[in-house]
Every structure is written in C-alpha cells, then in structure tokens.
Amino acid sequence: MAVHNYIRQRFFPHLWCPGCGHGTILNNMLRAVDELGISKNDLVMVSGIGCSSRISGYVDFHSLHTIHGRALAYATGVKMSQPRLNVLIPMGDGDALAIGGNHFIHACRRNMDLTAIIMNNRIYGMTGGQFSPLSGEGILCTTAPQLTIDRSFDTVELALASGASFVARTTSFHVREITKLIARAIQHKGFSVVEILSQCPTHFGRKNKLGDASNMLEFFKKNTTPFGSKAKQDNPELIERGIFRELDIPDYCADYERTIQKAQKGKSS
C-alpha cells in the first residue's frame, strides 16, 4: 500500500492503544501526502508532546519531536528559514489549546503558512486521562471525579476569531474527508487549521461509558453533519464538519520577504 512508503516501518506496531483514532488520522493523512505527490524531502513534521505527537516518529519525513505546546513555535522557525518546505504540525487538544494555546492564536493571527492538524480526543491520554480545555462539561476523568465543570473551547470558532485563513473540521470516522481536507490545507497558502475529532477508547470512552472504539466512531457518524446543512438547523446539537473558511490573503513569509526587499532597496548585497 502506498501509505507504507511514508512510514518508518521499524517502529511498528505503533504504541497507540487498540482502536485509537490517531492511527486512522495517520493513515489518511499519508494518503493526502501521496495524492499530492510531495517528496518526503519537502515535508517537515513538527510535533510537541502527547499521544498524538508521537506521530512524528512514525512518518518518514523530516521530523522534529519538540517540547510540550511549542510545536508551532519550532514550526515557525523552520518555515521562516526554509519557506519552500511544507510544514505539518499534528497536535493533541491539550498540546494545541492548553499548553500551546498562546502559540496557537498567534500563529493564526500571523497567518504563517503552516498546516496545523488538531487531533482532538478531549483527554490527556498519555498521562492517564486528565481533562483538557476541549473535554467540555460533565465529563468523568481522573482529575474530575465529580465530572468536569469547565466549558470547552470550540477549536473552529477560536481559529476563525484568531485569524487563521483556512479552517476545517472532520472526524476519525470520515476517513475520505480527512484526506481531502488535509490535502486542501497543505495546498492552502497561509495558516491552516484542521480539527479532527478522534476517539480515545482507553481513557475518555471507558470512563464515560461510551463503549468501544467502534461505538465512539458511530457517535461521530450520527452526531456530525456537513457545514451549512439543513440537518444542523433542525438539530443544533449536531457538530458541523467541512471547510469553514478559505481565504486568499498574503501569508507571513511573503510579507516578510517584501520587508527584506524594501530594506535592501538601493543597496548591493
């Protein structure tokens, strides 16, 4: 299979739990890379810390496994020094929006030409199931034995408000959509955010009695709808999937290049 050409097979089977949605995201993300025909040498994957961030170890691209929440800061550095490279930043919900929340909003604001993939399973799985800013209210987890009282971020709303020029969402059930949206996000010139709802059967599912991985995927199937659909008007509880914004505006590196040209005007370098 084509996807096997893009992984470091010596590290398989991977360490994710049985039924973890992150493996499915890896599977379909690689198909996007394959469809676009991007050379491994032109791809950089930068990740932080968490279950999701282990993904950078499995792909046969240039890869950086950095510090918690700071993947976007490292990715910004890579992009500024080598603007021709495609930079993918897979992050977990905690890594992206708790520890790395500040980096996230500023990367959106600057419109850095990066592709952020937020693998949102609503829990810190690696450390034993603590709640994250995306868990939402009424969730049972190790740090909320009486259920969570925190409201959650809406990743899409946050990215839109912060100025990201490409914002999309899908789930680990909608596998073809993962490939399609990631391919679009990579091609987009500017900051792209793709939130992918993922399942953590080990911590989130088991504690909240959501059944096994298949049951959690059934939930994504039944409780999501394409953006702008009539079903959403009839049932506002549904989670929307699809592309929420796709704006053609100058990215940070293009503006920076223009600044350099301006500063060097009239000087021989």
Binding site: M1, H4, F12, P13, H14, G19, C20, G23, N27, V175
Partner: peptide, 13 residues
C-alpha cells in the same frame, strides 16, 4: 476500501 482507511494500525492492505 473502508476497512483499509479506518484501520488505526495500518494493518490492512
């Protein structure tokens, strides 16, 4: 091809 794409372990071809 649904199983191949859904498989989290990349185990199906």
């Amino acid at each position: 091809g649904f199983c191949e794409r859904l498989c989290p372990d990349l185990a199906i071809t």
